[in-house]
Amino acid sequence: MGETRKISLTVNGKSYEEEVEVRFHLADFLRQKLGLTGTHLGCEHGVCGACTILMNGKSVRSCLMLAVQADGQELTTIEGIAPSEDEMHPLQEAFRDNHGLQCGFCTPGMLTTLLEFLEDNPDPSEEEVRIAISGNLCRCTGYQGIVAAALDAAQRLRDAKGV
């Protein structure tokens, strides 16, 4: 094992303190050390977007960051999106209702990317949604269902806020 360093961070509201090899990338840390395997690795060079997570509410590629760079930060992964065991987030519901996924491998990155996007832009156009997910590759759906799900989720979130 190479050089290690101790980091502390919050993931999905839970605090962790871990000794980590300095060369470990963040996605491997989340998956292997914390057992949060919902974050997927599709390319490990920042192209496919499957490993996207939220750091302090902003989307980052967890394959392009070292775990040590997340020291002191607050992270959200796909496991932390649903409000409870029995309930899903409106974005997750919308994905299910609009066939926004098939194999589900790109889904963690789609959800985290869109979570941030819909926060910034609660009433997006179809084109804006397409631009927002342009850094996330899906090989199954042809994106139609994903775009429909994003627009549907935006509506649901607006309705919930009474906007």
Binding site: A82, M88, Q92, L101
Partner: peptide
């Protein structure tokens, strides 16, 4: 609704690399 979706949407699917 697809039966596959809930676990995939919650990040608790079990893909090859998830096997420990």
């Amino acid at each position: 609704k697809r039966l596959e979706d809930p676990s995939l949407l919650r990040g608790v699917g079990r893909f090859l690399d998830d096997i420990q």
